[in-house]
């Protein structure tokens, strides 16, 4: 197992970090709370990276780790990590345009229980960005897929304003449902789950970095709070959880890319490990920041919100552990 990045991958990662640092400051994430259209310039900039919707999952992860770091709003994740893989699994002609950045899209799959398994329910839930994408692909049991233009959508408010989730009424979109291989659908959902885990690791890294620098700056009792062992040990445990999650995510991405038998287990491990990291890092980040971290003015909550919402989406930590148990016990 070799974790080294190729020169191209390093370039991709650095490019992603640079673009997102420039184009997606915390002020944008904040402005997006009241006005989702402010994310449009960012989306125009990210369109050229929609090619990541196909090809190595490792590359996709490197990029979305950077979008997670800045809690990027907009349809990028839904398009490259959900929509494109499902189109690819369904061998849809539309894929080419999506990869070229010409068409954005999202996926309506989860039923009322919020689980990403094919079902017959006409109302799908937790559909990201359903009101601002060009297409919605509906997945029903069979499994089948249908690509629709616009479907009635209602915002389901969560604590996370940076990723907007919707209920979507899909009754109108069953007309030309097309069968899709269950294996291919599994793979697409695995790819999305691994990508979300990578994105979540990015968000965790942001929370960690903010906490570490605050611990070095903030002085109490005439010394930086980062010199107190209670704070040091929290940060050491946070760092361990973060590094462990990073490794689990890229292991899963490699397993998926290699078509390895491990990939189902590795996907559950990735999301569960990233989820555990998110919970610990989220709580301790808030603790380390003291009162300032409890304010609306401080940016910490923007990332806390994204982290806890990502932990719950596409199967939360417990759910992934339980599915893993089904495979191993």
């Amino acid at each position: 197992m070799d974790f080294s990045l190729t020169d191209d991958q390093e370039l991709l990662r650095d490019t992603a970090r640079n673009i997102l640092a420039r184009e997606c400051p915390a002020s944008l994430v904040r402005a997006h709370i009241d006005d989702p259209t402010v994310a449009e310039p960012l989306w125009s900039r990210l369109r050229e990276y929609c090619g990541l919707g196909s090809g190595p999952a490792v590359d996709l992860c490197l990029f979305v780790e950077a979008t997670g770091y800045v809690a990027a709003p907009g349809p990028f994740f839904a398009t490259v990590a959900l929509f494109a893989p499902i189109l690819e699994a369904a061998e849809s002609d539309l894929l080419e345009k999506v990869l070229a950045g010409e068409v954005s899209g999202t996926v309506a799959m989860a039923g009322l229980d919020g689980l990403w398994a094919a079902n017959r329910e006409p109302r799908k839930t937790f559909v990201p960005e359903a009101d601002r994408v060009d297409r919605v692909v509906v997945v029903n049991s069979g499994p089948t897929v249908t690509v629709a233009e616009r479907l009635p959508a209602r915002l389901v408010r969560t604590v996370d304003h940076s990723r907007r989730l919707f209920d979507v009424e899909t009754a109108a979109a069953v007309a030309d449902a097309q069968a899709i291989a269950p294996d291919a659908l599994d793979r697409a959902v695995q790819r999305a789950t691994i990508a979300l885990s990578a994105e979540l690791v990015g968000t965790c890294r942001r929370l960690f970095d903010m906490s570490l620098s605050y611990a070095k700056e903030r002085v109490q009792f005439d010394r930086p709070i980062g010199s107190f062992q209670a704070i040091q040990h929290k940060l050491a445990d946070m760092a361990l959880d973060l590094e462990r999650a990073w490794a689990a995510v890229y292991y899963a991405a490699m397993a998926l890319d290699a078509g390895d038998d491990e990939r189902a287990r590795a996907t559950h491990v990735a999301k569960a490990t990233a989820g555990e990291a998110a919970r610990r890092i989220g709580k301790d980040a808030a603790q380390i920041h003291g009162g300032i971290g409890y304010t609306w003015e401080h940016d910490l909550h923007l990332f806390l919100r994204r982290a806890f919402a990502s932990e719950a989406w596409l199967g939360n930590t417990d759910w992934h552990h339980d599915r893993l148990a089904d495979l191993i016990v």
Binding site: R244, A247, A248, Y251, V269, H321, L324, I328, V329
Partner: peptide
Amino acid sequence: IAQMYSRAASLRAL
């Protein structure tokens, strides 16, 4: 058990 499996698997990767 699944948690322990996850720990071991993620530590191997790390």
